[in-house]
Design a binder for these strands. Sequence first.
DNA 1: TTGAAAGCGCTAACAC
DNA 2: GTGTTAGCGCTTTCAA
Lengths: 335, 335
Amino acid sequence: MTRETPARPTIYDVARRAGVSKSLVSLVLRGAPHVSAARRQAVLAAIEDLGYRPSRAASALASQQTRSIGVLIDDFRNPWFVELLAGLRSVLDPAGYTVSVADFQLEAASGRNPVDGFLAQHADALVLAAEPDAALLGEVPVPVVVAGVRELGPATLPEADVVAGDDEHGGTLATRHLVELGHRRIGHITGRGGPAAHRRRGYERTARDAGLEPFVAGQDGGTAEADGYAATVRLLEERPLLTAILAANDVMAVGALAALRERGLSAPSDVAVVGYDNSPLAAYRYLALTSVDPHSRDIGAEAARTLLTRLEQPDAPPRPALLEPTLVIRSSSGA
Amino acid sequence: MTRETPARPTIYDVARRAGVSKSLVSLVLRGAPHVSAARRQAVLAAIEDLGYRPSRAASALASQQTRSIGVLIDDFRNPWFVELLAGLRSVLDPAGYTVSVADFQLEAASGRNPVDGFLAQHADALVLAAEPDAALLGEVPVPVVVAGVRELGPATLPEADVVAGDDEHGGTLATRHLVELGHRRIGHITGRGGPAAHRRRGYERTARDAGLEPFVAGQDGGTAEADGYAATVRLLEERPLLTAILAANDVMAVGALAALRERGLSAPSDVAVVGYDNSPLAAYRYLALTSVDPHSRDIGAEAARTLLTRLEQPDAPPRPALLEPTLVIRSSSGA
DNA sequence: TTGAAAGCGCTAACAC
DNA sequence: GTGTTAGCGCTTTCAA
């Protein structure tokens, strides 16, 4: 009533101008099936003329659906999420969903449960681009799809759909690449969590298959740059003669580069380095990391499709999807 | 009515259980001023017991306020936004606002106007952590605060509050640092846009004051890593004897490192490199960029406070805030 | 194919 | 201080 609100047009206004009832307008709005072309045109025209925008609040209240999807990113500082998000939006946007993203680290730091935040917003569903945490996810009343993270047995959400890259295979690809380059002493830096564990497994199996002894560091550390550095320092202390290092992700690989340099070693001439995620970081010329590409954009798109399906068929059995990663070769591996 | 909705408790249920009217519950919910302690307790208890969560849709509809703030980030791949966002949330969260973020690049790529997205969601206000674009912002019916970007005259939104770092002074700090280190041939790589322009100005003035000839490249390019690389290549072609380079931001600085290396030069031994933003990138050990710290977290917090004030007093005159940057010295400048 | 009418859950006067 | 009462703008049966 104040000057604040220049009286946004409502569905009533549209109906009046188009000479129809508001129900009809509502139908047109949602791409109704059985509306005469004439009326539809009239409604569309009225909408256009008035500059009408439906009120999300009202429709959410009436329909009990917000048409919004919460996306929980593990850590904004690890840029692997960028493509994932692009993929998600490429299908969610056209479907009329709004996506709102939050950063797990940030939320957790302030003592909040990020999932609660989304629930408070009444998101219709959640995308978890992070390690699912049973504690946090205890009682989520909406569909959840885990994207980009292939879960380990016990932590699995019984109800959740999973769309991820085949991390174990990715670990294999990277390791095989190194083996084919002639490396015999290949180390691996890893961290806590499911994705790292799968990648590690791929590394270990492939190394053994090639008759090499796997050597891993950082198993109970984090997966950030500093953790990559620290793990590499330890790795080199115990195995000074390594000629190659596979990192559980790109940022850790950057940490590894630092540790190598401090020892007077450089990549790829002394030690080959391979990352994982093919994040924007890997493409930086100065780093030029050979990296496993999980095809995060595709994962995002597929996750979104899965979500849409789930929303339509809440009771369908979850069908986990595992995308095949590929290897992007840049100079850090000396290939 | 389907099994879908396990009948979420409403304000009615709370009221009944607490033995009060729903208005009273509503009052308590919003930290009412004049409610008796006893009743308040009863209401709070009932809320707790029932696991009640207010419906945002309903309250938005009734109050015409969504209590949500849209934050528009320039580019998710440039991690300077992380701290800014943390600062924003540190004050918006406690104030009961939800922040939803979008990435300008991503939105633009899909041909959407990101501001429209927020308006469709009926955000109560917008934070622009990006260059304000008059075209996009034409008719924004809600308060806007520009955060982290100090605007240039003509592009200025008449109505917008601005909270930014003093980029010109930052440029000065960085340049002075280099001068004090004894450098006489200092180049600068820059790009389009306001922040870069201010930083450049600080560089140019300080260089001249020190009796040095400023030399700038990349003026009409972008501000990503590849642009930093390209600008440095040109810089070095024309001024092969430079001993220091100031970049308009950290990612460009990383691009510069690559260009230097390709010419057989390294930082800091041959050429000192300084970045800007003090983003997570700068702190990577492998990069260890000396960088101007705009104190993005503080900027975010201040921007949020400004927003809150504006929301209460829509007609108060804008009061731009300019925070003082500091210099974070790491090894890339050889100090 | 279209319209009427009853809410969705909450806020905000206004009474009491 | 606390309760009553209208809506907020849309969706959704149910009739027509």
